[in-house]
């Protein structure tokens, strides 16, 4: 039984009278201790998917199962015990911390809400977690504005970790940070994963980060998963034209290196209803079949799936 199992999940936002299908029929699983990368360009629904799984955004259709329990429609009270099992790390280290609370309040309230431990035990846990994520030991009584971006992200990690979850959704956890700090935070996440047996759903638009980090990668386009494979397979043999284009867009340090696919043009349009493959308007290899018929996500063997007629 997978830790997290998502089946045919849909999330829709109302944009005026139209509906924005931010997540449009996504299915995948995350096993215990597994790191699943979720890549795609801005606005393709990655963050919405993460927030829908955590029940922070209401889903329109489909099911979310955590440890085999269906949590899709649980009320606030019934959801509370499941909240301990999954947490989130946010992109913006400035907006994700309440500016009017000390670090102690942030972490201690979480423990209090879930009635974990008495005063002394909680204090010991707070000290432990703060040192574990690499913050100075006198951090607890300070406010978020007294920390740098990288340190704030460590606070965000401490907050996600304080309830000892099994799954953490990392929503672009390093993209707002300096490159030198990025590596530190990524290594911290890797260490914590080993230490606590965490599973990550790692959302990023940065392929190099995902490659460094993920066991398995899901490529998302326009609310759907268009390709999924283990990270080795995907980098060796990308099958969907969109994935190829994403790889081609990564700048190469070698000037003699030839592009594997032409760069994609145009922009992601998310409100209009598309017939056929949702990538056809930007796909260099699109045919009449692509314009008429939507390709399902089909298996290519070895856990490799792609949603392309010609993959």
């Amino acid at each position: 039984m997978a830790l997290l199992s998502v089946r045919d999940l849909h999330t829709r936002y109302a944009v005026g009278k139209q509906q924005l299908r931010a997540v449009d029929g996504v299915s995948f699983e995350v096993g215990r201790g597994e790191t699943v990368g979720l890549v795609g360009e801005s606005g393709c629904g990655k963050s919405t998917l993460g927030k829908t799984i955590l029940r922070l955004v209401p889903s329109a259709e489909g099911t979310i199962e955590l440890d085999g329990a269906d949590i899709t429609h649980l009320g606030e009270g019934a959801m509370a015990p499941h909240r301990r099992r999954m947490q989130m790390i946010f992109q913006d280290p400035f907006g994700s911390l309440n500016p009017r609370q000390t670090i102690r309040t942030v972490l201690d309230t979480a423990l209090k809400v879930h009635r974990l431990g008495n005063g002394a035990e909680r204090e010991r846990q707070l000290q432990e977690i703060v040192t574990r994520v690499g913050l100075p030991s006198d951090s607890l009584d300070r406010y978020p504005h007294e920390f740098s971006g990288g340190q704030r992200q460590r606070i965000g990690i401490a907050r996600a970790l304080v309830l000892h979850p099994a799954l953490i959704v990392c929503d672009e956890p390093v993209s707002a940070l300096d490159v030198s700090i990025q590596a530190q935070i990524l290594n911290l996440l890797i260490d914590l994963k080993r230490e606590f047996g965490l599973a990550y759903l790692f959302i990023s638009h940065d392929l190099s980060v995902v490659r460094y980090f993920a066991d398995r990668v899901l490529v998302m386009y326009f609310g759907r998963i268009v390709e999924s494979a283990s990270h080795a397979t995907l980098w060796r043999d990308p099958r969907h034209p969109y994935t190829k284009a994403l790889f081609a867009a990564v700048p190469s340090a070698d000037p003699t290196h030839k592009r594997v696919a032409p760069p994609i043009k145009g922009e992601l349009v998310t409100t209009e209803q598309v017939r056929g493959c949702r990538f056809h308007s930007r796909c260099p290899a699109a045919t009449d079949r692509c314009r008429a018929e939507e390709p399902p996500l089909r298996s290519l063997g070895e856990g490799h799936h792609a949603a392309c007629h010609y993959a």
Partner: peptide, 12 residues
């Protein structure tokens, strides 16, 4: 985001 975080921590 910090309200999202509070919700994901299960605050009432």
């Amino acid at each position: 985001d910090f309200v999202m975080a509070a919700r994901s921590l299960g605050y009432s």
